[in-house]
């Protein structure tokens, strides 16, 4: 699975560059390779969708980039470059500075990313103060501006409310405001809409897309939902069993998927308007990490596999 040529956007250094990343989990039953030889770039202001089924390693890749791998997981090989500088070898203290200032995160469950004991205003203000050299009053003013920008009505009153006083969708908006307040260059959004109702999902995707365009922020959008990718991403990376199956511009991948896995994935999604009686199905299930087949990881489920795929 060599990354195709269009993986490297033309021009100067990409904002984020992941090269031959390999993540291992040593266990007492041997070492599990969770991520194997994954390479991709994210350009400034670009939205890269990272799609795959549960256990494909998409969230793990995100965690590795911002240095939040849970032990005993470790980066065994490869590098993560931010603006050409390696960041996977940085000591924890310096990594913490990058996290939040230059790269920030949005998680699936808005309730766990907000501290229930503090008002949202205080949480945003504090984050602004740790990363930027401005006074408290200015930070509060900025917090209200941010809340207005993410579409929270009456932000000058809502700024003093606690997270539980917001609805699910409004909470996720606050989380996005929090992620934006240090003006980061990259946001890693891990399933930002999965916990939300469908009608709220659409609003949050639109918001994320608009804000990142306005602020020229790059986004790595991790999701299992091809629909979210089609709505929001510029390019998409399809992951399977810890490897990249396909990467390319969204329209190309969605309309003419090249990899048999991506084709199967697209065919298995029910679509409105198309009167198909049977969905395309990929037989079997993704292998567990301790039983990844040799050769191409997808070969036992692939209808087009031949001898070379198996070795």
């Amino acid at each position: 699975m060599k990354p195709p040529a269009h993986n490297q956007p033309a021009g100067n250094t990409p904002l984020l560059s992941v090269r031959n990343l390999r993540i291992e989990f040593p266990t007492r039953r041997g070492t599990l390779v969770a991520i194997d030889d994954v390479s991709f770039d994210i350009a400034r202001g670009e939205v890269l969708g990272m799609v795959g089924e549960s256990g494909a390693g998409k969230s793990l890749t995100g965690a590795a980039i911002i240095g939040l791998l849970e032990p005993p997981g470790r980066i065994a090989a490869g590098e993560v470059l931010l603006d050409g500088e390696p960041i996977h070898t940085l000591p924890a203290e310096r990594m913490r500075k990058i996290r939040g200032r230059r790269i920030s995160m949005i998680f699936q469950d808005p309730l766990t990313s907000l501290n229930p004991l503090y008002t949202v205003g205080r949480q945003i203000t504090e984050t602004i103060l740790t990363h930027r050299d401005i006074g408290e009053a200015a930070a509060r003013k900025r917090a209200i501006e941010l809340l207005a920008e993410v579409g929270i009505p009456a932000p000058d009153q809502r700024v003093d409310h606690y997270p539980h006083q917001f609805s699910g969708g409004m909470r996720q908006r606050v989380v996005i405001a929090l992620a934006l307040c240090a003006e980061p260059e990259l946001i890693i959004a891990d399933e930002p809409t999965t916990a939300l109702d469908v009608s709220v999902q659409a609003q949050i995707i639109d918001l994320l897309k608009r804000l990142c365009r306005d602020h020229h922020t790059a986004v790595m959008l991790v999701t299992h939902d091809m629909g979210v990718i089609a709505e929001a991403a510029d390019r998409v990376a399809v992951m399977y069993a810890g490897r990249l199956a396909e990467i390319g511009p969204v329209r190309a991948v969605v309309q003419q998927p090249q990899h048999p896995y991506t084709r199967g994935l697209m065919g298995s999604i029910p679509v409105l308007g198309a009167d198909v009686h049977r969905l395309v199905q990929i037989d079997g299930a993704m292998p567990r990490l301790n039983a990844i087949p040799p050769g191409c990881a997808f070969n036992p489920r692939c209808t087009e596999a031949f001898a070379r795929c198996r070795s």
Binding site: G168, V198, S199, V200, A230, E231, Q255, M266, L272
Partner: peptide, 24 residues
């Protein structure tokens, strides 16, 4: 109609959405 508008345009055929607003 609003619910239908939330369905992502997965084949990217350029369907236009009605505005979705509010929450349950």
């Amino acid at each position: 109609r609003m619910l239908l508008a939330t369905i992502p345009d997965i084949k990217m055929e350029g369907k236009r959405h009605e505005i979705v607003r509010g929450e349950v």
